[in-house]
Amino acid sequence: MAHLASLARISMTDDELDVMAGQLDVILGAVSRVQEVAAADIPPTSHPLPLTNVLRDDAPAPSLRPADALAAAPSAEEQRFRVPRILDEE
């Protein structure tokens, strides 16, 4: 559970992890029914529409002004998003 929470980037408390582990067991027990049907020769469906490579014309159009794009930023500096450090110190 702690590994899954870390993959999902959620820093859950130990109590939260305990509760969720129990719930996940119950839910997985129910949804594993999908393993009872569908033989190997059944193709998967990922999407309801048979669309592929939908492209639009490469026409220039106005985009967001920097001030609008940054208006909701938790932190901004010099017309850029300011983010916490992304590299380890070593």
Binding site: L28, V31, S32, V34, Q35, V37, A38, I42, P43, P44, T45, S46, P48
Partner: peptide, 15 residues
Amino acid sequence: DAYYGQAQKVRTLIK
């Protein structure tokens, strides 16, 4: 394969 992949196959059967 056991979960997401299998669910997608069931989606085919429902369709």
